[in-house]
Write a protein that binds this DNA or RNA. Structure first.
Length: 477
RNA sequence: GCCGGUUUGGCGGAGCAGUUACGCGAUGGAUUGCAGAUCCAUUCUACUUGGGUGCAAAUCCCAAAGCCGGCUCCA
């Protein structure tokens, strides 16, 4: 039974989607005005893992994540760079897609953009005004927080404290400092759309309410985002949806990931730091970065440093080696024939334990570190028993399980299997096998200079050869 | 000021009442023609501090301290 921590109740709740076997989830995507930073990457990776696990459990997941392509930051940055807001958006959406690809994020069901839903937004704002929960002033439209008694349900910020908040800007147009913009009147040089209040553009919070409703219907099951979005963004989303559509809450489970913290001193000193996702992904194996990002429980803060990245690289290596060990043994058994042995049973049991254990951990609010522990326990079993396994079937089963389960965490172990599937693969494969046969003869004759030459030269060509007690294995690197 | 989180071994990071987390690193040993990979052992009877409850507390309760974050457009 899956339990998820719901920010709304501040407790773990049994997860029950409204429609059986289907999960509808929405994750706040980036504002595409700049390069995504490593903190954004964490959020992407976390919710991708959650989505993949739900799919592993058999749910059909509708996964919507947006691009905010119109807001103050977009406008300011476009002005600075001397390009249009639309061009700025294209540039950084492209950038996002590169990062998403490197992080092995499964493509969303859809990536809607705020500017594609202006009509829907206008419609929602009209409803809010019509329902007496919003008011227009000089082309701006504000949400009337005083008219929504449940304001603060999610963030648990009392409205009195809010007024006293350090960063509330005084705006004469607002009836109350707590009120927030639903629609902003056009200023000179800004992109704008027609509305009943004149030309203008949507407030930030409006888009997510609208797109969530449009693609998933209200209420939907999961809404995700960083903890910094709890207030005001998600609080306002709830208020908007409730005020416009008359429903109590637009979302059943609110999930928020913790921050990624940087050791500021350390980072700032090391050549400009590693603040953008791109810098990190260019400097480290993207798979290791992904592993690092899910190495902590998603609600906990996660510290970033060069050291932990290096640890992740080593951990990833251990996972890859285990897959290679299985593959190597499979090729050896293909050569010498398959005959089951006692070790087969042990490995088979380990596979079952892995599946059970991983599910138990992930069912507990997506405990990815726990899941990784299960994976590594399984890997030890692989390393202990594989050399004695006589049946190829259990090896294939183990490999498939390993690939599938680390796949939930976003680690792709099939990337290195390219050779075998290539058109020319068979010829190449046979040629390498032949060389290894010759090498084996040389080794038997204790002619190690020839044996080492074959291994070294193959190594130069990108073929790594390893010896085991029952023969040699190879892989393309 | 208000609200929230966090404090576990050399490092990362689970556990959330009773037994080895797991990974990385280090050291020693084993296996191997060598290399790579791997296994075993040690570091590892660790849990911010002070009280309390319990047969039993890292784990529950109370208090304090440190660190981090949110408080109108930042994942």
């Amino acid at each position: 039974m899956l339990k998820v921590y719901n920010t709304l109740s501040r407790s773990k709740e049994e997860f029950r989607p409204q429609e059986e076997n289907t999960v509808r989830m929405y994750v706040c995507g980036p504002t595409v005005y700049d390069y995504p930073h490593i903190g954004n990457a964490r959020s992407f990776a976390v919710f991708d893992t959650i989505r993949r696990y739900l799919e592993y459990k058999g749910y059909r997941v509708y996964f919507v994540t947006n691009f905010t392509d119109i807001d103050d930051k977009m406008i300011n940055r476009a002005k600075e760079e001397g390009i249009t807001v639309a061009d700025l958006a294209s540039k950084f959406i492209a950038e996002y897609r590169i990062i998403a690809d490197q992080l092995n994020l499964k493509p969303a069901s859809i990536n809607p953009r705020a500017t594609e839903h202006i009509d829907d937004i206008v419609e929602m704002v009209e409803l809010i005004v019509k329902n007496g929960k919003g008011y227009a002033v000089d082309g701006d439209v504000y949400f009337d927080v005083s008219a929504w008694k449940d304001y603060g349900v999610l963030s648990r910020i009392s409205t009195e404290d809010l007024t006293a908040g350090a960063r509330v800007e005084v705006d004469e147009k607002k009836q109350d400092p707590r009120d927030f913009a639903l629609w902003k009147a056009k200023k000179p040089g800004e992109p704008s759309w027609d509305s009943p209040w004149g030309k203008g553009r949507p407030g930030w919070h409006a888009e997510c309410s609208v797109m969530g409703k449009h693609y998933l219907g209200l209420p939907f099951d999961i809404h995700g985002g960083g903890q910094d979005l709890i207030f005001p963004h998600h609080e306002n989303e709830i208020a908007q949806s409730a005020a416009a559509y008359g429903i109590k809450t637009p979302v059943k489970y609110w999930l928020h990931n913790g921050f990624l913290t940087l050791n500021a001193e350390k980072m700032s000193k090391s050549e400009g730091g590693f603040s953008t996702a791109r810098e990190v992904l260019d400097n480290y194996d993207p798979q290791a970065v992904r592993l690092y990002l899910v190495s902590g429980q998603y609600r906990q803060p996660l510290d970033y440093s060069e050291k932990v990245l290096k640890q992740a690289i080593q951990s990833l290596e251990r996972i890859k080696n285990a897959a290679d060990t299985l593959r190597g043994r499979i090729t050896i058994l293909e050569r010498k024939g398959s005959r089951e042995s006692k070790a087969d049973t042990k490995l088979s049991e380990a596979v079952n334990k892995l599946r059970e254990g991983l599910q138990k951990e992930m069912d507990d609010d997506f405990n990815t570190p726990g899941a990784l522990a299960e994976v590594f326990t399984f890997i030890r079993e692989i390393n202990t028993h594989t050399k004695d396994v006589g049946g190829a079937a259990v090896l294939r089963e183990s490999l498939a399980a390993l690939i599938e389960l680390v796949g939930i965490l976003g680690i792709n172990l099939t990337l290195e299997e390219t050779v075998a599937s290539a058109e020319s693969g068979d010829l190449l494969k046979d040629a390498i096998e032949l060389l290894l046969e010759l090498r084996e003869d040389a080794r038997k004759a204790k002619d190690y200079s020839v044996a080492d030459k074959i291994r070294d030269r193959l190594g130069e060509l990108g073929v790594t050869v390893s010896d085991t007690k029952d023969g040699s294995t190879w892989k393309m690197s």
